[in-house]
Computed example of a mutant assay.
Amino acid sequence: MKIKKVLRFLMLAAIAVTGMSVVSCMDDEYMPVPVKLSDVNGNYRARLITSQGVKSNEKIIDFNAKDSLITFKDFPAGEIVKTIITDPAKADTVLAHLGKVEYTIKFKSKLNIDQNVVELALEPQVMAFQIPVGGVTKSVAVKMTAKQKGFYVGYDNSLRFVWEAEKITVGGTDVAPYQVIKYEVPISIKK
């Protein structure tokens, strides 16, 4: 009889404790830390998805955002070079000797308080570098465009944006036929 009373008491105590813990959690609300325009500035590690037609490639890259500029110190130019030089062996040789290609994207930022994000109006610049084509060094100009806004998300301190290589010109001549190369950073984490 005593054991039944003790068990009943323990069950009631467990139910009471569980009920109080559920009630105490009901008051907990997520209060986001408001973002500021300056929050965009920093060093990032990102997953870059590059796609051209049905071909897609992913790579982890680093970049910096500061003073309305996103700077890639070592931009992955593989798809661009492979579009210009269609022989895979020759393209790999050119890429091995190309070195680091630096690329910068300008942006204008605007605070969106309702969504707790900083919206980025991207203004991609023309990428320019030199490559050897047929034994001659030629200038490459890649016209970049951005058709949608980028975002700095306050919830996870990440930067997300998309842009495209709209046209490639080698030595003043447009590459034809040409299929647009799309660059997408779906998530990047501030280091």
Score class of each variant (00 low, 15 high):
residue 4 K to P: 00
residue 4 K to D: 08
residue 4 K to L: 09
residue 6 V to C: 05
residue 6 V to M: 08
residue 9 F to I: 09
residue 19 G to N: 08
residue 21 S to K: 10
residue 30 Y to L: 14
residue 35 V to A: 00
residue 35 V to L: 02
residue 39 D to L: 04
residue 41 N to M: 09
residue 50 T to G: 01
residue 51 S to W: 00
residue 53 G to T: 12
residue 57 N to K: 06
residue 60 I to Y: 11
residue 62 D to Y: 15
residue 62 D to A: 15
residue 66 K to S: 13
residue 67 D to L: 07
residue 68 S to I: 07
residue 71 T to N: 14
residue 71 T to W: 13
residue 72 F to V: 03
residue 75 F to Y: 09
residue 76 P to C: 14
residue 77 A to C: 14
residue 77 A to M: 09
residue 78 G to Y: 06
residue 81 V to T: 01
residue 82 K to P: 00
residue 83 T to N: 01
residue 86 T to S: 13
residue 88 P to F: 03
residue 90 K to N: 12
residue 91 A to S: 15
residue 91 A to L: 05
residue 92 D to Y: 00
residue 96 A to P: 00
residue 98 L to T: 00
residue 98 L to A: 01
residue 101 V to Q: 04
residue 105 I to N: 11
residue 105 I to C: 09
residue 108 K to A: 11
residue 112 N to I: 02
residue 115 Q to H: 10
residue 115 Q to A: 12
residue 115 Q to N: 13
residue 117 V to L: 03
residue 118 V to S: 12
residue 121 A to S: 13
residue 126 V to M: 15
residue 130 Q to E: 14
residue 131 I to Q: 02
residue 133 V to P: 01
residue 134 G to Y: 02
residue 137 T to D: 08
residue 138 K to H: 06
residue 139 S to R: 03
residue 142 V to G: 04
residue 144 M to G: 08
residue 145 T to P: 01
residue 146 A to H: 04
residue 148 Q to M: 14
residue 151 F to D: 09
residue 153 V to E: 08
residue 153 V to A: 11
residue 157 N to R: 14
residue 158 S to K: 15
residue 165 A to C: 11
residue 167 K to A: 13
residue 171 G to E: 03
residue 173 T to S: 05
residue 176 A to N: 13
residue 177 P to G: 14
residue 182 K to M: 03
residue 191 K to N: 01
